[in-house]
Design a protein around this nucleic acid. Structure first.
Ligand SMILES: [Mn+2]
Ligand SMILES: [Mn+2]
Ligand SMILES: [Zn+2]
Ligand SMILES: [Zn+2]
Lengths: 135, 135
DNA sequence: AATTAGTTTATAATAGTTCTAAAGTGAAAA
DNA sequence: TTTTCACTTTAGAACTATTATAAACTAATT
């Protein structure tokens, strides 16, 4: 993803391409593979990889803006920190608790032979599979 | 589960059957169906259903002791509160975000036709399925 | 250039949880 | 029984992740 696309992506989501948003967006989205992170880990990586300074609140604001715009998804992981995911497609995860690492599983890698039907009056919104790993 | 069983359960886990632990254990384990709760919800229910008073720290202590003893499991749910579960068997969940309610799915209700194999050097510890509901 | 609505920032506030250390209690020993 | 002491409860402080606040700044429009 090129710089021009980053700008388009922000603009089309109603987000002004500010210095911080562009830097964060480049860091998050100009990569081949899915990136899973917490705000804390992102903060450290940005400090290491860029010259700009980012208030923590700005990182939170920006991440939430990206999430609201559909550019990021949130993944629920054991522990109190919130994880975000640059893969916004419907997919599943391995979780390696040794190093708190999430690994993507594409949706078509999981097929069900049997699934319960939703309780009365409810419908299934989506199904998430979590595969916990050990060594 | 009778009172004598509660006492046995506590003793066999190295937990002294104090007034608070017995009351909490009776409240949690003397029931037919699985009970999912947060510390906050448990606190409110105990206040309503018992005459004793419980410091929040005692509820946390007790729940963690039960969890460490294998009498409770923890379920990861979106949001910042930790959920606990009286069902300690391997099982799955529906999650109804309308009312933040978890519903058990027994392990045999879910059968996989295809599952990815663990990454190199890793093994699968367990698989958790989360079915999010909508109306 | 002037305006203004949106953004960043430092800092305060909040929420859930864990820690602390003093007072209380259960159960083994005397 | 009474004594003893490790374990437990408790109120409140501390902690951690996150969100709110409001002043200073900036991008885009005029
Ligand atoms: Mn979590
Ligand atoms: Mn959670
Ligand atoms: Zn992912
Ligand atoms: Zn359950």
């Amino acid at each position: 993803m090129k710089k021009i696309d980053i700008l388009k992506k922000l603009r089309s989501s109603g987000l002004r391409p500010t210095k911080q948003r562009v830097e964060i967006a480049k860091f998050l989205f100009e990569r081949e593979k899915t990136f899973h992170f917490t705000v804390e880990s992102l903060d450290k990586l940005l400090a290491k990889k860029t010259t700009s300074k980012f208030a923590l609140a700005t990182i939170y604001n920006t991440i939430h803006a990206f999430k609201a715009a559909g550019h990021l998804s949130e993944v629920e992981v054991k522990g109190k920190k919130t994880y975000f995911d640059t893969n916004i497609s419907n997919h599943h995860h391995f979780y390696d608790s040794e190093n708190s690492e999430l690994i993507d599983i594409e949706a078509n890698e999981v097929v069900f032979q049997k699934l319960p039907k939703a309780p009365n009056g409810k419908k299934i919104k989506n199904v998430e599979v979590f595969i916990n790993l050990k060594n």
